[in-house]
Structure formats: C-alpha cells, structure tokens
Design a protein around this nucleic acid. Structure first.
Lengths: 358, 358
DNA sequence: ATCCCTTATTCAAACGTTTGAATTAATATC
DNA sequence: GATATTAATTCAAACGTTTGAATAAGGGAT
C-alpha cells in the first residue's frame, strides 16, 4: 500500500497505458473496467488480464475526462444561506458523511443570505456541471423562496423549509409538534405562567412553532398571557436571535409580569435569555426555567446546559443526500423521481435549564 | 445529416456556436476570449465581433473541458481535521470568502482526525486534479504531521500548525505571545493567585502557549503555583476540552487551593471551567476571573461573555488562500514559490468574565 | 462456397477546450 | 522580381474517456 517515492515524471496512468500493457484496445479496457453493457461478450480471460494490469499499474479513471464525455461531474452543490449559523455544523457533518460514501463530492458555498450571491454561485455550480443541489435556507428571508424557484435544471433537495415544488424534495422537521412538545414539557413540570419568545413573523418556522404552542395551550386549557408573549423583529441573520432574545427577555423582566418559565424560539434566543437573567441577578433554572429549540452545539456548553428540542440534523443531512441521489439516478435513467416531502420529529432533550416549579 | 432530435433544447453554448455565429474559427474565438498570447495579433474588429457574439449568445466556458485540456481544475481542496470544532466556522468563512473572488472553488472535506480517512480523501482530491490544498489540522494528534509530509505533488498551505516544509507554507498565530498577553491581562487586573489549565502536551499550541505564560511569569516575577497549574490529558478531539476543562476545574476547586483567576487553554475549556464554577455555586467573575483563547463563536454567548485571546481566523483563512494562489501561480509558470511562514498576532478581547481583583 | 449466427474485439467519433505550428495575405527589404 | 517580415487567422492534435457501430473470427447449416 506504500508508494515508493516516484520520480518526477509521474504521469498518471491512463486507459492507454493499461491497453498497451495488455495488448488490447483502449475500448476494451474501458469496457472491462466499467463493466459496461458490452462487457458481457468479453472473454473471461481478457477481462481478468485487463483487471489485473489495471490494478498493477495503479490505474484510476480520470473524473474530468469522464465528466466531459458523459456530462456527469460526480459533484453536488451545497448552498448554505448562512454558514456562520451554528445550526449548520451538525447538518454539514451529516451531509458530508453520507456523501463521501458515494462517488460524489460536495461543493459547499455560503450565500450570505443574498439573492444575487445565490445566483452568482448557482451559475458557478451549474458551469461545473453539478448533478444535484442541496439547499439549506437556514435563515431564509422572504426573497429566498423566489430564488429557489428558478432552478429547474438540476435535482434539488431543500432542508428545513417546506418548499415542495414538484421537482424539488424537502426534508423538514415537525416544527408545530416541536412547539407543542416544548410547551408540554414546561407544563408537566408544573409551570403555568410561561413566557414565550416567538421568532420573527417572516420566518416560516416561527409561525409553525407558535401554532404548535397555541395548540397545546388550547388542548391543555393553559392560558398564555399575551403580556409575556413577545415576538422578535425581522432579523438580518440567524445569529441575531441571541441579541434579540436578550433584549426581549430584559424587557420582559422590566415589566414585572411574573413568570416561572420561558420558551424561546431557538437555542440562541434561549442563550440570550439566560444571559439577560444572569445580568439581572436572576438564576436559571431556579428563578425561571428556559427551553430552547434546535440543539446546536452551544446548547450543552452554556451554563446551565440548555434543555431543548433536538433536531436530528445529522440524520437530516444524510437523508437529504439519500433523496438527492434518488433524484439524480432517476434523471440519469430518463425518468423523474417524484419529489417527496419528509418530515422528522424533534425530540425533547432535558438538560439543566428546566426544573419543576418548586 | 444534421441531427434533428435535440434532446435538450437548452444545449449549452460552446465555442463552436460563437464561431459559427461570427464566421470565424473556433481557435480564434478561444484566443479572443482567453486573451491568450496569440491574441495580440488579432485584428481589433474580429475581437470585438467575437466578444459581442459571445456575450449575446451567453457563452460560458466549460470548466470541465478546460480542465481536461490544460490540467487545471480551478478547484482547491480544504482538509479540515475536525469540522465539528467551532474554531472552524470563522476560518471557513474567511477561506470561502477569499476563494470565491477568484476562479477557484473549494472542495471541503472533514477528515475526522484519522490518518486513513485523510489518505482516502487526499486520493479523491488528487483524482479531481485539485490545484492546491489548504490543510487545517485543528486537532492534530501526533500522526498528522507525518501524514502531511506525503504530499509533494500539490501546493499546500497549513493553517494553525507551524509546519514548514520547504514546499509548504503555513499560517500560524503567535501562541506564545498570546499566552503572555493573557497572563498579563490577569496580572494587570491585580490577580496574583492564578490557576492555569494547560492544553494537552501532545498539541503543539499547548506547549507554545505555556511557554509564553512561563515567560511572563518570569519577567513579572509572578509565581505560578504548580498546585494550581493543571494539564489536560491527551484528548480525542477538539470539543473534548470542554469536559476536560470542567473536570480539571472541579478538581482544582476541591483542593481548596485559593486562586482568583483562571487562564484556560482555549475557549471551550474556559466554558467548561465556568460551568464547574457555576455548578459549585461560585460566580464568574465575582469569585474568579476566567480567560479563554481563540474567540470561537461560543465565547460571546456564554454567561458571562468570555474574555479571550482572539485569533484573526477570517484573516487567516483569507491569507491562506492568498498564499496558496501564489504557490499555484508559480507552479503554473514552472517556478517554485518558496514556502513562507506567516505568524499573526492574537488580540486581547475583554468581555465580562474577567474583572479586577476587588 | 454462401449465408447467417454468435462471440470477441476494435474503430472512430464524440465531449469542449487550448495552443504550437502551419497557412495565407499583405507589406517591406534587398 | 525574389525574398524576408509581419499580421491575421486557421489547422490539427491533444487531454482521457465512453459507446454505437463496424469488423473479424469462428462455427454450423444449407
């Protein structure tokens, strides 16, 4: 397995070399090595002779030449809207892990949540003949949905945003269910005066989570006092929910409305809330329980560690790859893989930031 | 006979199309559009005619065909040793941002700190004809250095680890200086009993930072009590410093040795330390000031926000790209760009976790 | 010998570029 | 008028594959 230090003229081994070595034509070698349709006629001895020689010479096919010939690049694009969002870490890991088991490699681009950058990158990726695209509109402001529409030409999977065009699959989580579960958790701990930090109205996930929260409230007969349900403003990027969480919580505390638990739109907002409590001399969870949403890596690092609704991000990444591959394969065969829409459950992860009401 | 059955009416525009349109040969078009050496002979009118037509038809060169011809892939690899390390976020942003201004696109791979995976990925990247490689051995256990040696064939830049082989540039930070500055900060705040959480011995940065700490201690005549200088064990990955920081700090507190400040190897260790204080009912910074190192995104999220030595990670990423491009360009011209070793300063970022000794 | 199957293998044309060398035409030099 | 020089453009080969069509080599059966 060790390669002796080859001298400089280390030309790569091509089909031609293998052909010359075995005294057979280039075509034959190609046919054998690809086990292509024609190979079923080939005599067994040629086949093994070629295979043996290929191995001996260390032949590896040139993906570039191959791409040129058959319009396959063995590459998929990954468009992240905001790569500094900690939400992406686990997701990327899942994508990368699944992808590398296949013949595909990812081109990861960070769009900075700008439509024009998206288009520029899309053009780049398109030129490179990417065979599929995974889109992660992790902080999709309004424009994003329109942006995505333009892409007819390549199989797509969207993660996190239920965006089901017929040629475009999506992987989402049950945001409403998550909202319900989160509130249920606080309720079961005995809390009744519960503050809510809703996400911005322009984010779909906000509306869904809020819907789930309302549903539980209604079903359980729990009154949600509008005075302690705050809504975030529209924010420029995902990371801003931290500051916004801080701001709203400070505000909340200054109104003197009592509450014993707080449900935050996401983990960053929850972290911001905890900071606010901290700064005002309150303690979490003693004075107030806090629950987040997402389970970003931060969540277990802050003090106290954060109870949250865990998104199965690695799984979502892997699943997006899987789905994308099906689309690609179908397209190769001239068919169309009908777009699917998969929704995953989120899971309550109890850490230290929530506690029973005394 | 012509082929009427056009499969895709959306056939991409090639040089041939532009040539046909302008009544000139393919070569000419290529020469004009590349402004290649031969183009200085071309008549101005042909040139503008071609350029105009190319624009009108929306010609874009096919990177794949181009790669095949001239062995350039316009692609660089980025090998991250541990992509879940929050240290990478800002770095990636810097790399990506700088790269996208050029003609290059990144293939980002996460090696999971395993030598064999590194080799497998390297092979993949090599096959893809990457023109350069950025290596981020962000938690390089012993083996890594050897691993890197094998790569003779492509321009390389290593980030974060002073690894100066003659064909390989590196971007590092002044770890020793950072250690010095960090301790100086605590000292200037009036702290004299200072605990230190040293990084694992097998990590180069640990040794350097410790050296800087010792230097300040000597210069300032500050005694560092060995009883409160702990050293981390060898750890499997970067994120483990959190737990290790927690563990060591708990231990530290149990020994009853008094100290008023703590200098942690990195931000995660500092976060672990803060958690430990928190769990034992101590308050940061009231009972003890804590300083970290790196300024990962977490640092401003934990409570209290973390005073730390900020690494200019975006800049390092951008700089690595810049350096890599010089290597690549030199190689294209048949020269060799002598490897350079750039060291950047780290900057003290005072937040809320450090405070003057009452 | 002719015809027709198989079976095993090769031809040759693409894919879209780049580029040293060749070609042509026009102009200057002797 | 012959020749060299220059300018403007094109030829043609190459990069390493893939693959439908063509070929060749063996049989039989008539």
């Amino acid at each position: 397995m060790t390669k002796p230090p080859q001298k400089h003229p280390r030309r790569t081994v091509t089909l031609r070399d293998v052909a010359r070595e075995t005294g057979v034509s280039i075509s034959t070698v190609s046919i054998v090595l690809n086990q292509s349709r024609l190979s079923k006629n080939l005599s067994v001895q040629t086949r093994i002779r070629v295979e043996e020689a290929a191995r001996r010479l260390g032949y590896t096919p040139d993906p570039v030449a191959r791409s040129l010939k058959n319009r396959h690049s063995q590459t998929v694009g990954v468009m992240i809207f905001d790569i500094t969002d900690p939400y992406c870490t686990r997701l990327l890991k899942g994508i990368e892990g699944a992808l590398v088991k296949t013949q595909f490699l990812p081109l990861i681009m960070s769009v900075q949540n700008k439509a024009d950058i998206f288009h520029r990158y899309w053009k780049l990726l398109h030129e490179r003949r990417i065979e599929g695209l995974i889109i992660v509109p992790n902080w999709a402001t309004l424009s994003a949905e329109k942006v995505i529409e333009g892409l007819q030409q390549v199989p797509c999977v969207v993660i996190g945003s239920a965006h089901s065009r017929d040629h475009m699959s999506c992987i989402t989580i049950d945001n409403a269910g998550g909202g319900t579960k989160a509130l249920a958790h606080l309720y079961e701990l005995g809390h009744r005066a519960i503050a809510v930090l809703r996400g911005p109205e322009n984010i779909l996930a906000s509306r869904l989570r809020w819907r789930g929260i309302q549903k539980f409230s209604k079903d359980a007969g729990l009154h949600l006092d509008p005075a302690i349900c705050m809504e975030m403003r529209a924010l420029p990027d995902a990371s801003s929910t931290f500051e916004e969480g801080y701001r709203l919580t400070s505000e909340l505390l200054s109104t003197q409305h009592p509450f014993t638990a707080l449900l935050a739109f996401d983990d960053l907002a929850a972290a911001g809330a905890i900071r606010a409590f901290h700064d005002l001399g309150r303690s979490v969870p003693r004075d107030c329980s806090v629950i987040g949403f997402d389970d970003i890596p931060h969540a277990q690092l802050i003090s106290p560690s954060l109870t949250t609704m865990r998104q199965p991000l690695e799984q979502m990444g892997a699943m997006s790859v899987e789905t994308l591959l099906m689309h690609i394969q179908a397209k190769d065969e001239g068919k169309i893989h009908k777009a699917v829409s998969q929704m995953l459950e989120v899971e309550l992860l109890v850490r230290r930031s929530t506690t029973p009401r005394e």
